[in-house]
């Protein structure tokens, strides 16, 4: 006899054991609005145009201080990413100088296989240039940040597969600056007040502002607003791609696998019933 109650109970037991893990993060972060991302959900894929815009913001603004040491130029041409052509990547890489002890003079032009060059030679250089604070590496930063939901809302995340806490946090952070700290808040010299940064005093000044980056508009396409809101969404999406470059392929495979498993389980159940037919158990 197939006992649905049994299976449900098993699922409930596992869920009840696994779920509290969600509650393990910090508890005093302010509420962060979830954005609607093209890469969320089981059919999620990156928006190629958005990744290209995000890349532009990263390249023109963020990469002046932040490294991305795990990102190779060639990755930018991979399927599911910003979709640059191999020629574009070659040309892009050649714009950068790569430190290479085996080359003449210790530097050479970049090639597609090179990794994104860091803006500072050492951690100490980076700190010296940034008032003592170290700008974190961007490679997996979008996955090293998250959003905490209050009970019982985090329970739903396991069923929706919510994995966009990083971009949501980054988007909120970039929009969370205040010119003045609220009254009574002691802001140290060289720090900036941010609603979402833990402890509120962040070493990075507001990096983006309306009109700072000019997007090129392709013919026949709607113009993209040049606003902080737009930049921060684009760069957060790009950072998610940096952290998870194979996301689209992973989800596509996943859908096929799940579909197969559900159908296969159905067939297995039918076979099992057939075999057990006529046996009291």
């Amino acid at each position: 006899m197939f006992n649905t109650k049994t299976i449900l109970a098993a699922v409930a037991l596992v869920a009840s054991l696994a779920l509290p893990a969600a509650a393990q993060e910090g508890h005093s972060t302010p509420h962060i609005d979830k954005q609607s991302w093209s890469f969320a959900g089981i059919f999620g894929t990156y928006d190629q145009n958005q990744l290209q815009r995000g890349f532009q913001v990263f390249r023109e603004v963020c990469s002046n201080c932040h490294s991305a040491r795990l990102i190779a130029f060639r990755t930018l041409a991979e399927e599911g990413g910003p979709g640059f052509s191999d020629e574009q990547i070659k040309a892009l890489a050649a714009e950068y100088e790569i430190a290479d002890p085996t080359a003449d003079g210790g530097v050479r032009k970049g090639v597609a296989a090179d990794f994104w060059p860091s803006p500072f030679a050492t951690e100490q250089d980076a700190r010296d240039a940034n008032g003592g604070a170290l700008p974190p590496d961007f490679s997996v930063l979008a996955k090293a940040r998250g959003v905490t939901d209050a009970f019982p809302f985090w329970i739903f995340n396991y069923f929706t597969g919510y994995s966009e806490g990083g971009p949501d946090y980054i988007h909120a952070l970039l929009n969370g600056y205040h010119e003045e700290a609220p009254e009574g808040f002691e802001l140290a010299e060289g720090k900036y007040y941010n609603d979402y940064f833990p402890g509120h005093a962040i070493g990075m000044g507001p990096p983006l502002a309306d009109g700072l980056v000019s997007y090129e508009v392709a013919e026949g396409e709607a113009e993209v607003p040049l606003t902080l809101q737009q930049y921060s969404t684009d760069v957060a999406a790009f950072m998610m791609w940096m952290g998870e470059p194979h996301l689209a392929g992973r989800k596509q495979t996943g859908f096929v696998v799940l579909l197969f498993l559900v159908l296969f389980a159905g067939l297995m159940y039918a076979t099992k019933r057939r075999i057990w037919q006529g046996i009291e158990h």
Binding site: I42, N157, Y158, G161, S163, R250, G254, F255, L261
Partner: peptide
């Protein structure tokens, strides 16, 4: 394998910690 695949393909990091 169904919940297994669900987590592995759609939320591989949800059971871990961002840190």
């Amino acid at each position: 394998l169904i919940p297994f695949a669900w987590f592995a393909f759609f939320a591989p990091d949800i059971l871990g910690h961002p840190d």
